[in-house]
């Protein structure tokens, strides 16, 4: 038996020689269920394939397990009802504005958490794309954002097609009515002026969907998912439209009471740091769905 053997407890031992994994299982071992050595092989061979797919991993069994006894295959339906797949279809929303109104109409809808407010306008603000203005400096050249940042309590501005989403500096205030009226007046003033709402430079430098998809997918794979995996969670990129992305949280994140925090402070920050030109980030997770969602 070669040196540098690493023991695997009752399973036997293994060694790595010439970039090959060699397993030495115990003789005449009877396993109930799957042979653990097969599981170990899968781990090692899987890891090797990911790391260097060009060098195949040779697995030798010095003393092959004799006639491993496997438990019978579990029945397809061992007394439990079949789990049905829950379909999510969008609700049909009626238009919130009268058609062809000559006036600039704006509706404000504060979020349930009170940290942001969505303003919907009956005029397009940015066709097919979105843009996130994190601060006053980023608004330079964009009249709509400049007008909004002139309001004292505005922290960030997100413009997306017919909507503007505002976060406020003072997180202790829950009543949005006073600020919302100021925001409404500012938006109406800029829209009625008839000039371009967003800087030409921003429009000219908008990235392609493919650039956004590649960048966001890379962040999900290298930063976000390794981070949420510790809690059994995962994040999937569902769609890219213009520079707006839609994600879905799954596993331990779906239905979790901290999902909103993870989304806004973790995922948004990671996305915007790595892909600064990403616009709106939509979360289409249904936190009430599933067989065992976690509720606070």
């Amino acid at each position: 038996m070669p040196g540098n053997l690493r023991l695997l407890g009752d399973f036997g031992s293994y060694n790595i020689k010439n970039n090959a994994l060699v397993l030495y299982p115990l003789r005449q071992t009877t396993w109930i269920g799957d042979n653990p050595l097969n599981f170990i092989k899968k781990i090692f061979t899987g890891m090797k394939r990911d790391a260097e797919s060009e060098s195949p991993v040779v697995v030798e069994e010095q003393q092959p397990v004799e006639e491993a006894v496997s438990a019978p295959e579990p029945e397809a339906n061992p007394g439990f009802p079949e789990v049905r797949h829950v379909l999510q279809i969008p609700a049909i929303s009626e238009s919130i504005f009268p058609e062809n109104s000559p006036a600039v109409l704006i509706k404000a809808k504060p979020s349930p958490t009170g940290d942001q407010c969505l303003f919907t306008v009956n005029r397009p603000l940015m066709n097919g794309n979105s843009w996130y203005f994190p601060d006053f400096e980023s608004a330079a050249g964009s009249p709509l954002a400049e007008a909004l940042f002139c309001l004292e309590d505005v922290e960030t501005v997100l413009v997306c097609e017919y909507t503007v989403t505002i976060t406020r500096k003072d997180k202790t205030l829950f009543d949005w009515v006073p600020l919302a009226k100021e925001v409404g007046t500012a938006i109406r003033g800029v829209v009625q002026a008839g000039e371009a709402l967003i800087s030409e430079k921003i429009i000219a430098e908008l990235p392609s969907e493919e650039e956004i998809r590649e960048g966001i997918q890379k962040v999900i794979d290298t930063e976000v998912n390794p981070g949420v995996a510790g809690h059994g969670g995962n994040v999937t990129l569902m769609a890219v439209k213009g520079n707006s992305v839609t994600i879905k949280m799954g596993g331990g994140c779906q239905g979790c009471s901290a999902a909103d925090l993870t989304l806004k402070q973790g995922i948004h920050t990671s996305f915007r740091t790595a892909v600064p030109k990403v616009g709106a980030i939509f979360d289409e997770t249904d936190h009430t769905a599933g067989l065992n969602p976690f509720f606070s």
């Binding site: 079949e82 049905r84 797949h85 829950v86 379909l87 999510q88 279809i89 969008p90 609700a91 049909i92 919130i96 109409l105 704006i106 509706k107 404000a108 809808k109 504060p110 979020s111 349930p112 303003f119 919907t120 009515v177 919302a180 009226k181 925001v183 409404g184 007046t185 249904d286 009430t288 769905a289």
Partner: peptide, 25 residues
Amino acid sequence: FGAVTLDKATEVNIWQDPPIPAFDV
């Protein structure tokens, strides 16, 4: 909700939270 087709393996979500109040500004 709009059109959907269901069978023995599917069900469709029909729950929606109460709409968040919106106001004109």
